[in-house]
Amino acid sequence: MLPTSLAEAVEALGTSPAAVPVAGGTDLMEAVNAGRLRPAALLGLGRITELRGWRYEDGGTAVLGAGLTLARMDRPDFAALIPALADAARTAGPPQTRNVGTLGGNIATAAPTGDTLPVLTALEAQVTLAGVGGTRDVPVSHLLTGLDPIRPGELLTWVRVPLLHAPQVFLKATGRSGPARATASVALVLDPARRGVRCAVGAVAPVPLRPLEAEAWVAGCIDWSARGEEGATPIDPAAAAAFGEYVATACVPDGYGADAASGLPPQGPTAAALALRRTVAVLARRALGRALK
Protein backbone atom coordinates (compact mmCIF):
# COMPACT_ATOMS: atom_id res chain seq x y z
CA MET A 1 0.00 0.00 0.00
CA LEU A 2 1.39 3.36 -1.01
CA PRO A 3 -1.05 6.10 0.05
CA THR A 4 -0.32 9.62 -1.20
CA SER A 5 -2.14 11.53 1.53
CA LEU A 6 -2.42 11.30 5.27
CA ALA A 7 -6.18 10.70 5.16
CA GLU A 8 -5.68 7.87 2.74
CA ALA A 9 -3.02 6.29 4.95
CA VAL A 10 -5.16 6.51 8.09
CA GLU A 11 -8.05 4.95 6.25
CA ALA A 12 -5.91 2.14 4.87
CA LEU A 13 -4.56 1.41 8.30
CA GLY A 14 -8.09 1.44 9.68
CA THR A 15 -9.21 -1.23 7.26
CA SER A 16 -6.13 -3.41 7.75
CA PRO A 17 -4.75 -2.74 11.24
CA ALA A 18 -2.20 -5.57 10.88
CA ALA A 19 -0.29 -3.58 8.24
CA VAL A 20 2.99 -2.16 9.45
CA PRO A 21 3.69 1.44 8.45
CA VAL A 22 7.16 1.87 6.94
CA ALA A 23 8.94 5.16 6.31
CA GLY A 24 12.74 5.02 5.99
CA GLY A 25 12.77 1.32 6.82
CA THR A 26 16.29 1.44 8.31
CA ASP A 27 15.24 -0.74 11.24
CA LEU A 28 12.14 -2.45 9.86
CA MET A 29 13.42 -3.61 6.48
CA GLU A 30 16.62 -4.90 7.99
CA ALA A 31 14.52 -7.14 10.25
CA VAL A 32 12.31 -8.18 7.32
CA ASN A 33 15.32 -9.02 5.15
CA ALA A 34 16.89 -11.04 7.94
CA GLY A 35 13.64 -12.99 8.32
CA ARG A 36 13.01 -11.85 11.91
CA LEU A 37 9.81 -10.06 10.96
CA ARG A 38 7.12 -11.05 8.49
CA PRO A 39 4.46 -8.30 8.49
CA ALA A 40 1.09 -9.20 6.99
CA ALA A 41 1.29 -6.04 4.91
CA LEU A 42 3.39 -2.92 4.62
CA LEU A 43 2.02 0.60 4.50
CA GLY A 44 4.57 2.77 2.70
CA LEU A 45 4.56 6.34 3.96
CA GLY A 46 7.17 7.65 1.50
CA ARG A 47 4.65 9.41 -0.76
CA ILE A 48 2.91 11.39 1.96
CA THR A 49 4.73 14.67 1.40
CA GLU A 50 2.77 16.56 4.08
CA LEU A 51 4.46 14.45 6.78
CA ARG A 52 7.96 15.31 5.55
CA GLY A 53 8.03 18.93 6.70
CA TRP A 54 7.16 21.00 9.73
CA ARG A 55 5.00 24.00 10.62
CA TYR A 56 4.54 26.42 13.51
CA GLU A 57 1.56 26.56 15.73
CA ASP A 58 0.36 29.28 18.05
CA GLY A 59 1.77 29.19 21.53
CA GLY A 60 5.38 28.56 20.46
CA THR A 61 5.12 25.00 19.28
CA ALA A 62 6.76 23.40 16.27
CA VAL A 63 4.77 20.59 14.70
CA LEU A 64 7.18 18.16 13.07
CA GLY A 65 6.08 15.63 10.49
CA ALA A 66 6.79 12.02 11.39
CA GLY A 67 8.38 11.61 7.94
CA LEU A 68 10.99 14.29 8.59
CA THR A 69 14.34 12.66 7.80
CA LEU A 70 17.27 12.74 10.17
CA ALA A 71 19.34 14.39 7.43
CA ARG A 72 16.77 17.17 7.05
CA MET A 73 16.81 17.79 10.80
CA ASP A 74 20.54 18.38 10.67
CA ARG A 75 20.19 21.36 8.28
CA PRO A 76 20.93 24.84 9.71
CA ASP A 77 17.36 26.18 9.57
CA PHE A 78 16.11 23.30 11.69
CA ALA A 79 19.19 23.37 13.93
CA ALA A 80 18.47 27.01 14.79
CA LEU A 81 14.98 25.97 15.85
CA ILE A 82 15.59 22.85 17.97
CA PRO A 83 19.38 22.51 18.30
CA ALA A 84 19.43 19.37 20.46
CA LEU A 85 17.26 17.46 18.03
CA ALA A 86 19.57 18.50 15.20
CA ASP A 87 22.57 17.29 17.22
CA ALA A 88 20.90 13.94 17.86
CA ALA A 89 19.96 13.56 14.20
CA ARG A 90 23.51 14.38 13.08
CA THR A 91 25.06 11.62 15.19
CA ALA A 92 22.30 9.07 14.60
CA GLY A 93 24.21 7.08 12.00
CA PRO A 94 26.05 7.16 8.70
CA PRO A 95 24.70 9.46 5.94
CA GLN A 96 22.96 6.56 4.18
CA THR A 97 20.88 5.93 7.29
CA ARG A 98 20.21 9.57 8.02
CA ASN A 99 19.07 10.28 4.47
CA VAL A 100 16.13 7.89 4.80
CA GLY A 101 15.67 7.37 8.55
CA THR A 102 12.81 9.45 9.98
CA LEU A 103 11.83 11.05 13.26
CA GLY A 104 8.63 9.01 13.40
CA GLY A 105 10.54 5.82 12.73
CA ASN A 106 12.93 6.59 15.56
CA ILE A 107 9.99 6.97 17.94
CA ALA A 108 8.03 3.97 16.67
CA THR A 109 11.07 1.67 16.79
CA ALA A 110 11.76 2.94 20.32
CA ALA A 111 15.21 1.37 20.47
CA PRO A 112 16.94 2.06 23.78
CA THR A 113 19.72 3.70 21.77
CA GLY A 114 17.37 5.81 19.60
CA ASP A 115 19.18 9.13 19.58
CA THR A 116 16.23 11.49 19.20
CA LEU A 117 14.33 9.92 22.11
CA PRO A 118 16.15 11.52 25.06
CA VAL A 119 15.87 14.89 23.30
CA LEU A 120 12.12 14.52 22.78
CA THR A 121 11.77 13.35 26.38
CA ALA A 122 13.70 16.33 27.72
CA LEU A 123 11.64 18.67 25.51
CA GLU A 124 8.45 17.06 26.82
CA ALA A 125 7.23 16.61 23.27
CA GLN A 126 3.76 15.37 22.41
CA VAL A 127 3.01 12.84 19.72
CA THR A 128 -0.12 13.03 17.59
CA LEU A 129 -1.68 9.67 16.77
CA ALA A 130 -4.27 9.58 14.00
CA GLY A 131 -6.90 6.86 13.70
CA VAL A 132 -10.11 6.54 11.75
CA GLY A 133 -12.00 7.76 14.80
CA GLY A 134 -9.95 10.93 15.17
CA THR A 135 -6.62 12.08 16.55
CA ARG A 136 -5.23 12.26 20.06
CA ASP A 137 -2.06 13.70 21.60
CA VAL A 138 0.14 11.62 23.86
CA PRO A 139 3.30 12.74 25.72
CA VAL A 140 6.28 11.01 24.11
CA SER A 141 7.34 9.56 27.48
CA HIS A 142 3.94 7.92 27.93
CA LEU A 143 4.27 6.39 24.49
CA LEU A 144 7.80 5.08 25.08
CA THR A 145 7.13 3.65 28.53
CA GLY A 146 4.03 1.87 27.26
CA LEU A 147 1.78 3.88 29.57
CA ASP A 148 -0.25 4.93 26.55
CA PRO A 149 0.95 2.96 23.52
CA ILE A 150 0.01 3.28 19.85
CA ARG A 151 -3.27 1.41 19.37
CA PRO A 152 -4.04 -0.82 16.39
CA GLY A 153 -5.07 1.25 13.40
CA GLU A 154 -3.31 4.37 14.65
CA LEU A 155 -0.62 6.17 12.71
CA LEU A 156 2.07 8.34 14.26
CA THR A 157 1.70 11.57 12.32
CA TRP A 158 3.07 14.63 14.09
CA VAL A 159 5.47 15.44 16.88
CA ARG A 160 4.72 18.66 18.76
CA VAL A 161 7.79 20.23 20.27
CA PRO A 162 7.61 23.36 22.42
CA LEU A 163 10.02 26.03 21.19
CA LEU A 164 12.10 27.22 24.13
CA HIS A 165 14.41 29.74 22.39
CA ALA A 166 17.23 28.75 24.74
CA PRO A 167 20.39 26.65 24.57
CA GLN A 168 19.93 22.92 24.40
CA VAL A 169 22.54 20.19 24.05
CA PHE A 170 22.66 16.54 23.07
CA LEU A 171 25.83 14.58 23.86
CA LYS A 172 26.53 10.94 23.23
CA ALA A 173 29.37 8.62 24.15
CA THR A 174 30.13 5.82 21.71
CA GLY A 175 33.71 4.69 22.21
CA ARG A 176 34.61 5.38 18.59
CA SER A 177 34.84 8.29 16.19
CA GLY A 178 32.69 6.85 13.44
CA PRO A 179 28.92 6.54 13.75
CA ALA A 180 27.84 4.05 16.39
CA ARG A 181 25.18 3.25 18.90
CA ALA A 182 25.44 5.26 22.09
CA THR A 183 26.74 3.65 25.25
CA ALA A 184 25.08 6.58 27.00
CA SER A 185 23.60 9.86 25.85
CA VAL A 186 22.38 12.99 27.60
CA ALA A 187 19.94 15.61 26.34
CA LEU A 188 19.74 18.82 28.34
CA VAL A 189 17.49 21.81 27.61
CA LEU A 190 17.14 25.11 29.40
CA ASP A 191 13.75 26.66 29.93
CA PRO A 192 14.63 30.23 31.00
CA ALA A 193 11.00 31.37 31.06
CA ARG A 194 10.30 28.94 33.86
CA ARG A 195 13.89 28.97 35.13
CA GLY A 196 14.01 25.24 34.63
CA VAL A 197 16.52 22.65 33.44
CA ARG A 198 15.27 19.48 31.82
CA CYS A 199 17.51 16.54 31.25
CA ALA A 200 17.07 13.02 29.88
CA VAL A 201 19.54 10.17 29.79
CA GLY A 202 19.38 7.74 26.87
CA ALA A 203 20.74 4.26 26.14
CA VAL A 204 21.22 3.21 29.78
CA ALA A 205 17.70 1.83 30.16
CA PRO A 206 14.98 0.64 27.75
CA VAL A 207 13.53 4.18 27.71
CA PRO A 208 15.09 7.61 28.32
CA LEU A 209 15.21 8.51 32.01
CA ARG A 210 14.48 11.92 33.56
CA PRO A 211 16.42 12.68 36.78
CA LEU A 212 13.74 15.03 38.09
CA GLU A 213 15.30 15.73 41.48
CA ALA A 214 18.65 16.55 39.93
CA GLU A 215 16.93 18.87 37.47
CA ALA A 216 15.14 20.75 40.22
CA TRP A 217 18.26 20.96 42.34
CA VAL A 218 20.51 22.30 39.59
CA ALA A 219 17.92 24.83 38.45
CA GLY A 220 18.27 26.39 41.89
CA CYS A 221 22.07 26.52 41.58
CA ILE A 222 22.04 28.52 38.35
CA ASP A 223 22.39 32.28 38.42
CA TRP A 224 19.78 32.85 35.70
CA SER A 225 20.41 36.57 35.45
CA ALA A 226 24.13 36.05 34.73
CA ARG A 227 23.44 33.62 31.90
CA GLY A 228 24.68 34.80 28.52
CA GLU A 229 26.63 37.74 29.89
CA GLU A 230 30.25 38.18 28.90
CA GLY A 231 32.63 36.58 31.41
CA ALA A 232 29.85 35.55 33.77
CA THR A 233 29.82 32.16 35.48
CA PRO A 234 26.17 31.21 35.79
CA ILE A 235 27.06 28.09 37.79
CA ASP A 236 29.78 27.06 40.20
CA PRO A 237 31.90 24.33 38.49
CA ALA A 238 31.61 22.22 41.62
CA ALA A 239 27.82 22.40 41.37
CA ALA A 240 27.99 21.37 37.72
CA ALA A 241 30.13 18.37 38.64
CA ALA A 242 27.77 17.47 41.46
CA PHE A 243 24.86 17.69 39.02
CA GLY A 244 26.65 15.14 36.82
CA GLU A 245 27.05 12.74 39.73
CA TYR A 246 23.45 13.33 40.80
CA VAL A 247 22.15 12.48 37.31
CA ALA A 248 24.39 9.43 37.02
CA THR A 249 23.41 7.97 40.38
CA ALA A 250 19.75 8.59 39.65
CA CYS A 251 19.84 6.91 36.24
CA VAL A 252 22.23 3.98 36.69
CA PRO A 253 21.19 1.48 39.37
CA ASP A 254 23.77 -0.30 41.55
CA GLY A 255 23.02 -3.63 39.97
CA TYR A 256 23.62 -2.46 36.38
CA GLY A 257 25.18 -5.21 34.28
CA ALA A 258 25.09 -7.70 37.17
CA ASP A 259 24.38 -11.30 36.35
CA ALA A 260 20.75 -11.68 37.37
CA ALA A 261 21.07 -15.46 37.30
CA SER A 262 23.68 -15.49 40.06
CA GLY A 263 20.91 -14.73 42.56
CA LEU A 264 23.27 -12.94 44.92
CA PRO A 265 22.10 -9.66 46.42
CA PRO A 266 24.16 -6.81 44.94
CA GLN A 267 27.15 -5.84 47.08
CA GLY A 268 27.30 -2.14 46.22
CA PRO A 269 27.48 -0.88 42.66
CA THR A 270 28.97 -3.21 40.04
CA ALA A 271 32.07 -2.26 38.08
CA ALA A 272 29.88 -1.84 35.01
CA ALA A 273 27.59 0.50 36.94
CA LEU A 274 30.53 2.59 38.13
CA ALA A 275 31.97 2.86 34.62
CA LEU A 276 28.62 3.84 33.13
CA ARG A 277 27.94 6.34 35.92
CA ARG A 278 31.27 7.99 35.26
CA THR A 279 30.37 8.32 31.57
CA VAL A 280 26.88 9.68 32.30
CA ALA A 281 28.27 12.10 34.90
CA VAL A 282 30.82 13.48 32.43
CA LEU A 283 28.19 13.83 29.71
CA ALA A 284 25.71 15.58 32.03
CA ARG A 285 28.37 17.95 33.37
CA ARG A 286 29.60 18.81 29.87
CA ALA A 287 26.06 19.24 28.59
CA LEU A 288 25.23 21.67 31.37
CA GLY A 289 28.48 23.52 30.79
CA ARG A 290 27.79 23.91 27.07
CA ALA A 291 24.19 24.97 27.65
CA LEU A 292 25.26 27.70 30.06
CA LYS A 293 28.25 28.94 28.07
Binding site: T91, L171, A173, T174, S177, P179, V282, R286
Partner: peptide, 15 residues
Protein backbone atom coordinates in the same frame (compact mmCIF):
# COMPACT_ATOMS: atom_id res chain seq x y z
CA UNK B 1 40.20 19.20 15.06
CA UNK B 2 38.36 15.92 14.99
CA UNK B 3 38.02 15.15 18.68
CA UNK B 4 37.81 11.63 20.10
CA UNK B 5 34.15 10.66 19.91
CA UNK B 6 33.88 12.00 16.38
CA UNK B 7 32.15 14.98 14.80
CA UNK B 8 29.16 16.12 16.84
CA UNK B 9 30.38 13.92 19.66
CA UNK B 10 30.85 14.69 23.31
CA UNK B 11 34.55 15.51 23.03
CA UNK B 12 35.85 18.36 25.14
CA UNK B 13 39.25 19.84 24.18
CA UNK B 14 40.01 20.51 27.86
CA UNK B 15 39.91 16.79 28.64
Amino acid sequence: WLLPGGPGGAGDPAA
